[in-house]
Simulated scan of single mutants.
Amino acid sequence: MSKAFTRESDQDDEDDLPVVAPVSTGKNYITRTGYDRLRAELFTLIDEERPKMVEIVHWAASNGDRSENGDYLYGKKRLREIDRRIRFLTQRLEIAEVIDASVHHGGDQVFFGATVAYADESGLETTVTILGVDEVETARGEISWVSPVARALTKARVGDVVRLAVPGGVQELEVLAVRYPAPEPAS
């Protein structure tokens, strides 16, 4: 059937979104910094971006024919994106469990919030910080606490060798150092 004979609607734009695996709704560990960052994003969307976009859509709708009005069509699409992100952030923040990694400061065992230096079998040293799913930025060397590497390293101590299942078999990683953030001074 030709595309010319199909009905177009606002919902068609959602089909273009990439398919993303759902995030587990079990535990949602997050640091205070990550929680505050997500909360700030949520309030920015609610208090600033959404009202601006509603105003633009209202203005564009008042210009007449909506079917060929680019401002209106883009505005409606952007409004749906904002609303989707607001729902996502609200749900993730509701189940978030803020973890204070500084309670382990000075310890040598790997837990959530640790910055871990490890070496693989070839001697390549890597440093990663284990954080929550919603706050990870891989470009900064951060990994999610549910990632295979983090799961292999969790509960290991400095000097321990852990086994990591990789596509080519099993790889051994030696824990070289473990650091935690310093506790915040009491106010």
Rank of each mutant, 00 (worst) to 15 (best):
D100A: 06
G70M: 06
R37K: 10
P185N: 12
F5N: 04
R78N: 10
L173T: 10
E14G: 06
D65R: 13
A165S: 13
S122H: 06
P51M: 05
V166F: 02
F43S: 05
H105I: 03
S24G: 11
V98T: 09
K27S: 15
Q91V: 09
A165V: 13
M53D: 04
R32G: 08
I82H: 05
R32F: 13
Y35C: 03
T127A: 01
E68L: 15
A61L: 12
E68K: 14
V162L: 01
A177E: 12
A177Q: 11
Q11H: 14
R151Y: 03
D108H: 02
E55Q: 15
D16E: 13
G107Q: 05
E49F: 10
V170G: 07
G64D: 10
E55W: 05
S147M: 01
A114E: 00
A119L: 10
P148E: 05
H58I: 05
L79Q: 08
G75E: 00
S2A: 08
E135A: 04
R85V: 04
L45F: 05
D134R: 01
V146W: 02
R179Q: 14
V110Q: 04
R7H: 10
L153K: 01
R163P: 04
Y118F: 12
N63L: 14
D83I: 12
R78Y: 13
L45H: 02
A21L: 14
D108T: 12
E142H: 06
D12T: 14
L45W: 03
A96F: 01
L176R: 14
R85Q: 04
V146I: 11
E49C: 07
N69K: 06
G132N: 01
T115E: 03
E41M: 03
R66D: 09
F111H: 12
L176V: 15
E135W: 08
A61W: 14
E125D: 08
R37L: 13
Q171S: 15
A40H: 11
I82T: 08
W145Q: 08
I95N: 01
E68H: 14
V116N: 02
R37H: 11
T129W: 04
P181I: 11
S122Q: 04
I143L: 03
L93H: 00
T90K: 00
F43L: 06
V23F: 01
R32Y: 12
G107E: 00
W59P: 02
F43V: 07
V175I: 14
V161Q: 07
E41W: 00
E135H: 02
Q11M: 09
D36Y: 12
D10W: 12
Y35R: 00
V162H: 05
L42W: 09
V110F: 08
S122L: 04
T25H: 07
S187F: 13
I99R: 01
Y72I: 09
R37I: 13
